[in-house]
Simulated assay, not measured.
Amino acid sequence: MAGHPFFTRTTCCLNYRIPDAGNCDDCVLLAPGSRQERWLEAVRAERAAPDAHLRL
């Protein structure tokens, strides 16, 4: 859907502190290029399967 909102955090989720959890996709601790690539991957995945988040 064109104009679909894209979530980004404005505060740290602290996910990186959980063992083996890694960083969230919009983590400020990631290099800007890495963060942008994760965003692009999320957009591509959404375009490929727009209703995938609705499936349980």
Rank of each mutant, 00 (worst) to 15 (best):
Asp25Glu: 12
Arg47Val: 09
Thr11Pro: 00
Arg55Met: 09
His53Arg: 13
Gly33Lys: 11
Ala31Ile: 00
Thr10Leu: 11
Arg47Ile: 04
Leu40Gly: 08
Pro5Val: 04
Gly3Lys: 03
Cys12Ala: 04
Met1Arg: 07
Gln36Ser: 13
Ile18His: 06
Cys13Met: 07
Asp51Ser: 00
Cys12Gly: 01
Asp20Ile: 05
Val28Ser: 09
His53Thr: 08
Asp25Met: 10
Val43Asp: 00
Ser34Ile: 15
Val28Met: 10
Ala52Phe: 05
Arg55Gln: 14
Phe6Lys: 08
Thr10Trp: 08
Asp51Lys: 06
Arg9Cys: 15
Trp39Tyr: 14
Gly3Tyr: 09
Arg44Ser: 04
Thr11Asp: 12
Asp26Arg: 01
Asp51His: 06
Phe6Ala: 12
Ala21Ile: 01
Gly22Met: 02
Thr11Ala: 12
His4Asn: 10
Ala49Ile: 01
Pro19Asn: 04
Leu29Thr: 05
Ala45Tyr: 01
Gly22Cys: 03
His4Lys: 11
Glu37Asp: 03
Leu30Tyr: 03
Asn15Lys: 14
Tyr16Lys: 08
Arg44Leu: 12
His4Ala: 14
Ile18Trp: 09
Arg47Gln: 07
His4Ile: 09
Glu46Gln: 10
Ala45Thr: 00
Glu46Thr: 02
Arg35Lys: 06
Ala2Met: 14
Leu30Gly: 02
Asn15Gln: 14
Phe7Arg: 15
Val43Arg: 05
Glu41Leu: 07
Asp26Gln: 00
His4Val: 06
Ala52Met: 04
Leu54Val: 10
Val28Cys: 10
Leu54Pro: 08
Leu14Cys: 08
Tyr16Thr: 09
Ala49Glu: 08
Ala2Thr: 06
Leu29Asp: 05
Cys24Val: 02
Arg35Met: 07
Ala49Phe: 03
Tyr16Glu: 06
Cys24Glu: 02
Arg35Leu: 05
Gly33Ser: 09
Tyr16Val: 08
His53Cys: 09
Ala2Gly: 12
Gly3Ile: 05
Trp39Val: 13
